[in-house]
């Protein structure tokens, strides 16, 4: 499999991360091509979620966070001079581990919250709401109760609402941090279907603990590992099929076959 850098949409170059003096991530070079789903797997504490947060500059919100290397979106460094983190986060959306709809807003207000929060002007809000909810395949469930508080929804619905909320911003890249870890199998399946549909329109990076999920939804997979106090690194990166069925590194083989982690 040949992932040419020419088509890659998002790309990390020599990413190193520190928290204070602790070096937690070293030399991560990954390509995320357009319309592909990339899964980041690895045991807890290997730095995969931290890496995900460097991709839309959420990382720098943690006090004492340090960073080296660059993240290129269409060839442009998102950490470059004069680049506003707010603009980066508009282009690169994020879905979090726990569903976090805004409790004081209705379903409809939640969808439009991103536009309002980032200060964008928009005209036909109702259309945006419907389109976003349809793309997150939750429209049919909530179309009659758009005015109700978002937290009246079930956990799985809340997470799809959060996805819809990100989609309303029309991001080029969607980052998902273990989006199904707090959900039941039924909701997980619906979200995986959504991810597959969305990948036709955008680049998706998903952190997951669930290796079946990685195999089901992703085109390529990166395996992160942090050994004995060393910073986390990417041990293996390639097409999902290769990483799971023909791993090159023995540690990858052990991990994907459930020998540790």
């Amino acid at each position: 499999m040949n992932l040419s850098t020419a088509t890659s949409h998002l790309r990390s170059e020599d990413i190193n991360v520190w928290f204070g003096e602790r070096h937690v991530l070293a030399d991560v070079n990954l390509d995320f091509p357009s319309n592909q789903v990339t899964a980041l797997i690895g045991p807890s504490g290997c730095g995969k979620s931290t890496f995900l947060r460097t991709l839309n500059r959420m990382h720098e919100l943690i006090p004492s966070a340090g960073l080296a290397g660059s993240v290129l979106l269409d060839g442009q460094d998102i950490y470059g001079d004069g680049v506003n983190p707010v603009d980066v986060r508009i282009k690169i959306g994020m879905v979090f581990q726990k569903p976090n709809p805004f409790p004081t807003m209705s379903i409809k207000e939640n969808i439009l919250s991103g536009l309002k929060l980032s200060g964008r002007k928009f005209v036909n809000g109702d259309d945006i709401v419907e389109t976003s909810l349809r793309r997150a395949s939750i429209w049919n469930e909530v179309k009659d109760r758009l005015g109700e508080p978002a937290i009246s929804l079930s956990g799985g619905q809340q997470q799809r609402l959060c996805i819809a909320r990100s989609l309303a911003m029309e991001p080029e890249v969607l980052l998902m941090d273990e989006p199904c870890s707090a959900l039941d199998p039924g909701s997980t399946r619906r979200i995986e279907e959504t991810i597959e549909e969305l990948s036709e329109a955008m680049t998706i990076v998903i952190v997951t603990h669930n290796m079946q999920q990685a195999q089901r939804v992703s085109h390529q997979t990166a395996f992160f590992l942090a050994e004995d106090g060393n910073p986390g690194t990417v041990v293996e990166f390639g097409s999902t099929d290769d990483v799971f069925n023909r791993p090159v590194d023995a540690r990858t083989n052990d991990y994907v076959n459930g020998h540790f982690g």
Partner: peptide, 14 residues
């Protein structure tokens, strides 16, 4: 909750 702050910042809010 910090979740809500993250969610808002993640949506590109100042």
């Amino acid at each position: 909750p910090g979740d809500l702050r993250s969610a808002a910042l993640g949506l590109g809010a100042p």
